[in-house]
Structures are given as structure tokens and as C-alpha cells.
């Protein structure tokens, strides 16, 4: 279900809700799968008392991974050629995230996308780009 260049226009958007009310357990799941066991993400006592953050927070790579799901759902399996992001704000347990891809250009069989993920307050938590092969 790849995209077709002839059906794409600059400015087209695709949006998905990535997560509602992010659970601490999902952050633990990501720690286990990725191998990044930094206590800042899973250990409330360490994070609040030692590191002085208000609570544990998500790995940036969890947000990038969930945003990647939006991208592959849009462009199709195995079609991404580039994907890069900046982590612009932290993501906390309880956050609800929405992510949008916007078509910036279509040329030579490649679609270039702007990628933005925001939280329930409308604050951007991730901004980046992706490129994918289209038919």
C-alpha cells in the first residue's frame, strides 16, 4: 500500500494519534526492548529525588519510534529512506501525542515529508523529516 506520486500534492497531510494517556508501563516496555535502562525513564525515586525532575519521562527514542509507526502506516512497509528528528520537549506519563506528516516535495520517486509530534497542550515534542520511495 505504497503511496503513488501522481496522487500526492505538496501540503497533503496525514495524522495519527500515537498514544493516549501514556503509561509508565509502556516506557518500561520500551526500556526492555531497546536496552536503554536509564533510571530517568523508569525509576521514580531516582528521577525525582536524585535527578530532580518532576517524574520519570519517556525516552526520546520511544517518541521517535511511535512517530515512525505513523510514518510507516502512511508510506508503506519498507519504503522509508530517511528519517530524522529533534526532540524539542520532554514527554511525560499521561501525555497524549498526535503526529502529522506533511508533504513538502515529490520528485524522482521520493516523497519528502515534514514530521511533527505534539502533546495534548499543543506543544511540539518532536520535529523532523522523512523521505520515502513512492510509486
Amino acid at each position: 500500500m505504497a503511496l503513488s506520486a501522481s496522487n500526492l500534492n505538496v501540503g497533503d497531510t496525514y495524522t495519527e494519534c500515537l498514544v493516549e494517556d501514556l503509561k509508565r508501563t509502556q516506557i518500561v516496555q520500551y526500556a526492555g526492548a531497546s536496552g536503554d535502562y536509564n533510571p530517568l525513564h523508569t525509576d521514580e525515586i531516582f528521577t525525582v529525588e536524585v535527578a530532580k525532575y518532576p517524574s520519570v519521562f519517556a525516552h526520546g527514542m520511544l517518541t521517535m519510534g511511535m512517530t515512525g509507526r505513523m510514518l510507516t502506516n502512511y508510506v508503506g512497509d519498507g519504503r522509508l529512506t530517511k528519517y530524522g528528528v529533534r526532540f524539542t520537549s520532554q514527554v511525560w506519563p499521561g501525555d497524549t501525542l498526535n503526529s502529522t506528516a506533511t508533504v513538502e516535495s515529490v520528485e524522482d520517486g521520493i516523497v519528502n515529508l515534514k514530521v511533527e509530534t505534539t502533546n495534548q497542550d499543543g506543544s511540539m515534542v518532536l520535529s523532523g523529516y522523512a523521505a520515502a520511495k513512492v510509486d
Binding site: G60, M61, M64, T81, Y83, G84, V85, F87
Partner: peptide, 9 residues
């Protein structure tokens, strides 16, 4: 902290 991540496939 992790500020940016980029992949080329």
C-alpha cells in the same frame, strides 16, 4: 539527554 536522531536506510 538525547537531542537529535537521524537514520538513513
Amino acid at each position: 539527554l538525547h537531542a537529535e536522531q537521524h537514520f538513513e536506510y
